[in-house]
Amino acid sequence: MSAPADILVVALDPLLRKVVTENVTPFAEGATVLAVSQTRATPERLGAAAVVVLAARDNDYTGLRPVFDLVKAADRPTLLVTAGESSEARAAAADLRIPGALHIAIPELDIREELRAIAPKLEAALKQARRDRARAGPAPTATPPRPASPAPAVEKPRPPEDLGAPYLGTVICIGASTGGTDALLTVLSGLDRNCPPVAIVQHMPKDYVADFASRLDQSCRIDVEIAHDGQALRPGLAVVAPGDRQFRLRKGNKGIWTALGESERIGGHCPAVDVMMKSAAQELGKKSVGVILTGMGRDGAEGLLAMRQAGARTAAQDEETSVVYGMPKVAFEEKAADTVLPLKKIANWISGVTLQLPK
């Protein structure tokens, strides 16, 4: 088990857990922040925490009910963050005897922006919880206190640890080239914030990938990042392959993660869509979805065909909406795509087929 956390963030929804933790951490004042799923909110962790932050969407309360009982038993100062303004949220606050100052309710729209907007209120609530903690006395835990050590002159905040259950579900794989930057924005902005993880290969010089990923992240409800080696995938996250390494997916008992490999070109490309999609076919099989968007050449057709043969659902962008009808055309001609769609319908198609796939 990890060392006790000063601030313990508990949420059933992984995206809400991540966003709340991101917004709590700047006000932690050097305290340890730990993010866990409801199944990892043990009595020991709750009892050792100085402050507990519970976060819930409107449909999470049934799953969090056992945690509420543990929180009451631990008797730790608790901050409740609710996305949505249902009667269940108010009932939860009353059940936990959380005062109004420690109950932060935000609309269930763009939770990242909503939390940023109420940052002063969040900071004040954490300070109030700390004052309550001081009055509550030491935490009832047998764990000895950690010795204080002098901090270095300059230290970046340590990223919070997330001990949620590993993700082993569906992954969406998208490949694109010429015209793909705008096409990807259209597709990703149409996906729900809790959609399955997305792996992207966009043919682009490496020096432009960071700005591209940042633009997507700012414009979409899901999180978009440049992939790094060994990065765990999760719902609500899209990763863009860096522009100078081959990009693959790997799967094991501990989840699904990214693997960055060689820098050599394959089929004339690094990264190559074929490489990513062939790895998805091998590792994920029918628990994957493949999409080829606008682009020049034939990269991705072999990989998409491998995915289809492994049982995955596959699609290609149609000629009318493609800036360059090269990659999608080859994918269609080689029967790699089981459907052809205009660009604006691809996000809805992805959402529909992922609901039908095995969990």
Rank of each mutant, 00 (worst) to 15 (best):
K206Y: 04
Y208K: 12
V209I: 15
A210Y: 12
D211S: 15
D211N: 15
D211Y: 11
F212P: 11
A213N: 08
A213M: 08
S214L: 14
S214E: 15
S214D: 15
D217Q: 08
Q218T: 13
C220K: 05
D223N: 13
V224G: 07
H228K: 14
D229K: 07
G230M: 13
Q231V: 01
Q231D: 09
Q231S: 01
A232F: 12
L233D: 08
L233C: 04
P235D: 00
L237F: 13
A238Q: 04
V239Y: 10
V240S: 09
V240G: 10
V240L: 13
P242W: 13
G243I: 05
G243D: 03
R245Q: 14
R245H: 14
Q246W: 10
F247G: 08
R248Y: 06
R250D: 11
G252M: 02
K254L: 13
K254G: 13
G255H: 04
L260Q: 02
S263F: 00
G267N: 08
G267E: 07
G268I: 08
G268D: 09
H269R: 10
H269I: 05
C270K: 06
V273A: 02
V273T: 06
D274V: 05
M276G: 04
M276W: 07
M276S: 06
M277E: 06
S279Y: 05
Q282G: 06
Q282Y: 12
E283T: 14
L284M: 07
K286C: 07
K287F: 00
V289P: 02
V289K: 08
V291L: 11
T294I: 07
G295S: 10
G295F: 09
R298E: 13
D299K: 01
G300S: 06
A301Y: 04
A301T: 07
E302N: 12
L304A: 09
L304V: 10
L304M: 14
L305S: 13
A306S: 14
R308K: 14
R308C: 03
A310M: 08
G311T: 09
G311I: 09
A312D: 03
A312N: 07
R313G: 04
R313V: 14
T314G: 05
A316Y: 06
Q317H: 02
D318Q: 12
E319Y: 04
E319H: 01
T321L: 04
S322A: 14
Y325R: 07
G326A: 00
G326P: 03
P328V: 08
F332Y: 11
E334I: 02
E334Q: 15
A336H: 00
D338R: 11
